[in-house]
């Protein structure tokens, strides 16, 4: 199912699953990722799944590109459907003006009212394609076609922790204060990344389903205070 394996530098395999970015392709990536991770193959130091690629980095003292490529090609992957183990995670989100930093921009560019945008946003189940860039950040899709917009022309130097943003076909949650260019429409008090929980530090994992639901400011601060 991997279309092609090439080298990324001298210490990583670059596995290409095709050009399409959709859930079907991504499920294949996640399946390979999970299976290879479970096998604990000697020399592999990191696995980085994304929409349609899987990068496998390795320790050059233990194995080299040709040897590891062969090992990966020889693995028999199970036929099971990982969708059966999908978790559903509910994320409370407050879209008060204080948090919806780009709602005006979205409203004028998309020619929709604030209410219409939020309705479309909340009325959908999302799929987690990958996590990363910053620790625990989930890349979720696909958002309603009518609320798709490109990134900000000038990215923010600081997007606050907890910010919920959208761009193109995707939504995400800023797990840390970070620079970023996504259109921010709310904030969640939910802790998405917990470094103290080393076994399962991320609340949302690739392959999971995510539902957002709206809360008011009072509920937001109550949840935030109880964190």
């Amino acid at each position: 199912m991997i279309k092609n394996i090439s080298n990324l530098g001298d210490a990583a395999l670059y596995c290409d699953f095709g050009n399409d970015v959709n859930q079907k392709t991504n499920f294949k990536v996640i399946k390979y990722f999970k299976h290879i991770k479970k096998k604990n193959i000697e020399g592999i130091t990191n696995l980085i799944p994304s929409y349609n690629k899987l990068i496998i980095s390795f320790d050059l003292n233990v194995v080299n590109f040709t040897e590891l490529k062969k090992k990966i090609e020889d693995i028999k992957f199970p036929e099971n459907d990982i969708r059966r183990n999908q978790k559903i995670i509910k994320i409370p989100t407050c879209c008060d003006d204080e948090f919806a930093l780009d709602i005006e921009r979205l409203s004028s560019k998309l020619n929709l009212t604030k209410k219409e945008i939020l309705e479309k946003y909340f009325n959908k189940e999302y799929f987690c394609y990958m996590t990363g860039f910053i620790a625990g950040m989930p890349f979720l899709g696909d958002i309603d076609e009518k609320i798709r917009l490109e990134r900000l022309e000038t990215p923010r130097v600081k997007v606050p922790k907890g910010a919920v943003g959208i761009t193109e076909q995707f939504a995400n949650i800023y797990t840390f204060e970070s620079p970023g260019g996504w259109n921010i429409l709310g904030s969640t008090p939910t802790k998405i990344f917990d470094k103290a929980n080393e076994r399962q530090p991320t609340l949302i994992c690739p392959g999971d389903k995510v539902l957002f639901y709206e809360i008011n400011k009072k509920e937001y601060f109550k949840l935030n205070g109880n964190k």
Binding site: T45, N46, I55, M130, T131, F193
Partner: peptide, 11 residues
């Protein structure tokens, strides 16, 4: 740090 890239933590 090994085995953390997939959660967004670099080496």
């Amino acid at each position: 740090r090994n085995n953390c890239y997939h959660i967004g933590l670099p080496f």
